[in-house]
């Protein structure tokens, strides 16, 4: 058993997974195998079942102190995946690589069939339009209302007023904030602010949603609500990738878990748990 290598899959692609740390195989009953919803119809992903492909990806910010070492990740479209690990284990680096805020030192990254590394810089914005993004600190503009914050995201990618007027209330309804439409961020609770930020990430119906510690600033009760919301978004066919160190959440959700430690992938497990004490 090679530790830190890619995901071991059974014949049907998801029959078994291995607990790399302990080396024991955890059989998964076939009838409980994870439902893989189809992507939204009309999406370019219908012909693109593989959403994220990372191969031998390493990232060195400074020499001989790697943030990521030889990471291999395959994520199919429609999956719901946690990336867990301590602070500094490389979770955020992984997210930033996927957003092409960073380029890896070595390795290849392909998102929805697009080679992210060889991508021309003028094409990067178009990649990002297909990736929703949620952060621990919400990143809402304080001088704009919930509605305006979401409208801003559509405005700057050139959506028409008509689209904005119909899409924004709809997505606010989806996250359960239809009555807070004109509230400013400082009038909203942390959970509500995160809902606005999720609404903003999702308003453009991206096929991929990345979340970097989305519940890091929230109490457990609120966090669960946020996770349920992300799960509902996943049900619409959007691939969801969540970096977190929220142990309870990961254990409750029973979804695929990729564990990082010191920049190495130490575990990739379907219906996994957080797995180790931190």
């Amino acid at each position: 058993m090679v530790i830190g290598r890619g995901r071991e899959t059974g014949a049907n692609g998801r029959g078994f997974c291995y607990h790399y740390a302990s080396g024991t195989a955890l059989p998964v009953p076939a009838d409980e195998s994870r439902a893989c919803p189809r992507p939204p119809s009309g999406s370019f992903l219908e012909v693109m079942p593989r959403m994220i492909h990372m191969r031998n990806v390493s990232k060195y910010y400074v020499e001989d102190k790697p943030a990521l070492v030889d990471v291999d990740v395959e994520i199919q479209s429609g999956e719901f995946v946690f990336i867990v690990g301590h602070s500094g284990s490389g979770k955020s680096t992984l997210i930033r690589l996927l957003l092409r805020e960073l380029l890896p030192t070595t390795g290849e990254i392909v998102i929805a069939g697009q080679d992210v590394i060889r991508m021309k810089s003028w094409k990067v914005p178009y990649l990002r339009r297909n990736i929703g993004c949620v952060f621990q600190d919400f990143k809402l503009l304080p001088n704009k209302t919930a509605y305006e914050n979401i409208a801003f995201a559509l405005e700057v990618i050139g959506k028409s007023r008509h689209v904005i007027r119909t899409q924004v209330p709809e997505v606010l309804r989806l996250v359960g904030l239809e009555d807070k439409i004109d509230s400013y961020p400082d009038e909203l609770s942390g959970g509500e602010q995160q809902r606005v930020s999720i609404a903003r990430a999702f308003v453009n119906r991206p096929p991929l949603l990345l979340a970097d510690e989305p519940t890091g600033n929230l109490d457990p009760q609120t966090s669960l609500g946020i996770m349920k919301l992300l799960e509902r978004i996943n049900k619409t066919g959007t691939t969801v990738l969540i970096a977190t160190h929220d142990r309870e959440m990961v254990d409750t959700m029973r979804q695929r878990v990729i564990a990082l430690e010191g920049g190495r992938m130490i575990r990739d497990q379907d219906r996994g748990v957080y797995g180790y004490v931190d």
């Binding site: 914005p125 990002r128 339009r129 297909n130 990736i131 993004c133 503009l141 801003f152």
Partner: peptide, 8 residues
Amino acid sequence: IMRLVGAG
């Protein structure tokens, strides 16, 4: 934020 949501 503009960058995140893919403004050109």
